Simulated scan of single mutants.
Amino acid sequence: MKQSLLLFLILSVCNSCEDVIGVDLPTSDSKLVIDALLGYNENSGNPIISGQVKLTLTAPFLAEEVPPALGAVVTIIDEQTRIPYVLTETQPGIFGINFPEFEFNRSYTLLVEHDNQVYTATQQMNHSPTIDNVVQGDSFLFNEDETEVEVTFTDLPGESNHYLFSFGFGNFLVVDDEFFEDGQLTFSYFYEDVEPGDLLSITLFGIDKDFANYANLVLAQSGEDMGNGPFAVPPANIRGNIVNTTNPENVPFGYFAISEFDTKLLTID
């Protein structure tokens, strides 16, 4: 079954309307933004842990740069062993070294200490299928300058699933399996401004329903382009799953998620 990207965007937005999610009015106060999507790939017995915890501060409208949040301590705690893993800051506000070896059916807590306040969220790792195939097509959606890429994957059986696709260049798509449960799906994604010889990286994450709803709202607010990550702050302040245990009224932006992932590469002809 082949469906276009446009149809999936319509379905994703409609499905996200089923649940009521609070949206706060924007404020001028600087708030912490925690961008934490971590990925795991079994890689034939040599696991790969990817992703980072990125901390920034909200900036005034039309500001040229988004400032990093400095002076933070970021820890991930394995709730089964209670072992804390203090992450290493590789760039200002970016923590990407010393992750635990994630396992399924085990809870992990993200702990961020910044400006005398403590922020936490607890998650388990979500399963993801592999991408069956990625090929270049010859169709276009709006104009002949677009490049079609056909993506095929098979739904995880026996349960309701949600997925996040990353197509590079800050572009993401949320998909749920309502219309192809336990089956295989082929759909088209259309790139602009790619040239012959360009290498495309397409990644599939398994996510839960709460993250799917959050990502749909962020996509809708940001016009489908989420910049440097799936947690970029949109015009309206959308609640994630991270809480401030020091001052509950000072809610941060962003989301903490752990997902199995699969990536396919494609060189444009």
Score class of each variant (00 low, 15 high):
residue 193 D to P: 00
residue 139 S to W: 01
residue 203 T to W: 02
residue 132 D to I: 07
residue 161 N to K: 06
residue 160 S to D: 15
residue 175 V to C: 02
residue 131 I to L: 11
residue 158 G to Y: 14
residue 156 L to R: 10
residue 182 D to Y: 07
residue 222 S to M: 12
residue 217 L to A: 00
residue 204 L to M: 09
residue 186 T to R: 04
residue 185 L to Y: 09
residue 155 D to T: 08
residue 212 A to T: 06
residue 182 D to R: 02
residue 181 E to L: 08
residue 219 L to H: 07
residue 196 P to M: 03
residue 162 H to K: 05
residue 165 F to I: 04
residue 194 V to G: 03
residue 212 A to P: 00
residue 140 F to Q: 10
residue 160 S to L: 12
residue 220 A to K: 13
residue 155 D to P: 04
residue 147 T to Y: 02
residue 219 L to V: 08
residue 178 E to G: 01
residue 137 G to A: 03
residue 205 F to G: 05
residue 189 Y to T: 09
residue 206 G to F: 06
residue 191 Y to H: 07
residue 175 V to W: 03
residue 178 E to N: 12
residue 175 V to K: 00
residue 159 E to R: 14
residue 222 S to F: 02
residue 191 Y to K: 03
residue 158 G to V: 13
residue 183 G to Q: 15
residue 232 A to W: 04
residue 138 D to M: 07
residue 200 L to Q: 03
residue 137 G to E: 06
residue 131 I to M: 06
residue 156 L to Q: 08
residue 135 V to K: 05
residue 133 N to L: 14
residue 159 E to I: 10
residue 198 D to F: 03
residue 230 P to Y: 08
residue 225 D to F: 13
residue 197 G to A: 05
residue 211 F to Q: 13
residue 199 L to E: 15
residue 167 F to E: 01
residue 231 F to K: 00
residue 163 Y to E: 09
residue 175 V to Q: 03
residue 234 P to S: 08
residue 171 N to I: 11
residue 170 G to K: 04
residue 209 K to G: 00
residue 145 D to I: 01
residue 197 G to N: 10
residue 226 M to C: 04
residue 212 A to W: 07
residue 137 G to R: 03
residue 153 F to S: 06
residue 184 Q to L: 11
residue 201 S to G: 09
residue 199 L to Y: 04
residue 230 P to H: 00
residue 194 V to I: 15
residue 203 T to P: 00
residue 220 A to F: 13
residue 198 D to M: 01
residue 207 I to D: 10
residue 154 T to H: 10
residue 168 G to F: 07
residue 198 D to Y: 01
residue 153 F to R: 01
residue 179 F to Y: 12
residue 191 Y to W: 09
residue 174 V to M: 02
residue 221 Q to S: 14
residue 201 S to I: 10
residue 227 G to L: 12
residue 195 E to N: 13
residue 205 F to T: 10
residue 146 E to G: 04
residue 179 F to H: 14
residue 157 P to G: 08
residue 218 V to R: 08
residue 136 Q to V: 03
residue 142 F to S: 12
residue 148 E to Y: 05
residue 234 P to Y: 08
residue 168 G to A: 07
residue 216 N to C: 10
residue 153 F to Q: 03
residue 214 Y to A: 01
residue 176 D to Q: 09
residue 228 N to C: 11
residue 223 G to R: 02
residue 190 F to C: 05
residue 194 V to E: 13
residue 233 V to N: 02
residue 208 D to W: 04
residue 175 V to I: 15
residue 209 K to R: 13
